[in-house]
Simulated scan of single mutants.
Amino acid sequence: MLRQALEPGLRPAVLHIAQPVDGGVARVVADLVTDQVAAGLRAAVACPRGGVLTEAVRALGADVHPWRAGPAPGPLLLQEVLQLARLVARVRPHVVHAHGAKAGLAARLALRGRTPTVFQPHTWSFEGVGAITARLARSWERYSARWADRVVCVSEAEQRTGERAGVEARWTVIRNGVDTERFLPAADVRPRGLPPLVADLPESTPLVVCVGRLCRQKGQDVLLAAWEHLLRRLPNACLVLVGDGPDAEVLRANAPASVRFAGAEADATPWYRAADLVVLPSRWEGMALTPLEAMACGRPVVVTDVDGARESLPPGHALFCLTPSQDPYGLATAIGDLLLNAPLRATLGRQGHQYVVSAHDVRHTAGAVADVYRDVVGVRPG
């Protein structure tokens, strides 16, 4: 019904506008395009060159339209908005789906309600910035909500954060999902499969893995501070940081010998499967993908209590797996307690896998997004 209603002729049913083009946002967009192409819809993406998104979308057979845009508002914003307005006028999609604060800013300025628009912040523009910038960003989000037919939040907590900032919108919560056919537990073989970077470790070495962009948001600096406490309990433990980013050099300079850096990985699945425990010490999120991917692979997680974290955990897991944000000692305690309790880790891993399969499969997410598209163009399922 959605395909017939949205796609007469050659117009794309959906134009995704994305900035950034790496990390979780890029994976969400790629997963949506995968599902939409499989359903027979013509989906297209407008995004800056570089990153993993362009290659992933083209591999699916979808169109990619280069959009020259930086990661944050700046002196070139007007040019970016005008460029985007021309692009949308040329492509003439039925629905525009803007991902991320910068894409949401530019898309709403360019369209101002003339095309059905879905805005998905992933994290709000006023989080993680200075006080003056945050105040301006909150004012902008309150004003521009009129130009979004729907604001899609990835967690109820993210919606509440928007509401507390005074944003009045037509809300829909669609929790993040992951590909449970790709992220699977490893076969139960011994010894465990270790990536080359840690192949020299004894089988008994407690291995903690953190997957995420190396930046302030993801909190690896807090994890390194926690690691000093942890080594007093478990001096033979090893931590691997998987990812790259602006803080890489500083983190390397401050890391002890028991911390190893894997760099950016196109597929983090081998790291999830090798880990005894996966940790994400974020300062802010909407709902992070890393804990969902790790649990889909049957691994327990420790996450900080930021937006979306509680909603990403199975019932009862918060007691063991949730710690306050920016609390190195609390983080170290949670990590150490789980590393010293193998039966509990095994139970949490099994329960986490079952929970993600039932509640966070990406196909459920894509179906809910398709329902939003139907609604914003005035189409109901037949």
Rank of each mutant, 00 (worst) to 15 (best):
H229A: 10
R232F: 03
R232P: 02
L234N: 06
L241P: 04
G212I: 02
G212W: 01
G243F: 03
A225P: 04
L231Q: 13
L241W: 03
P246R: 11
P235S: 11
V250L: 14
L224H: 10
L230H: 05
V211N: 00
L239H: 06
D221A: 15
C215N: 15
R216L: 14
G245R: 07
R216N: 12
A248G: 12
C215Y: 06
A226Q: 09
R213W: 04
L234D: 12
D244I: 01
C238A: 13
K218M: 08
R232A: 14
Q220L: 03
D221L: 14
A225K: 14
R233D: 14
W227S: 08
C215E: 15
L239T: 05
L234I: 13
P246E: 15
A226G: 12
A226H: 12
R233E: 13
A226S: 13
R213T: 01
C238W: 09
C215F: 09
N236D: 15
E228M: 04
G243R: 08
V222D: 14
D244G: 11
W227R: 06
C238D: 00
G245F: 09
W227T: 10
D221Q: 15
N236P: 00
D244H: 10
A225Y: 11
G212T: 03
V240H: 06
A226V: 10
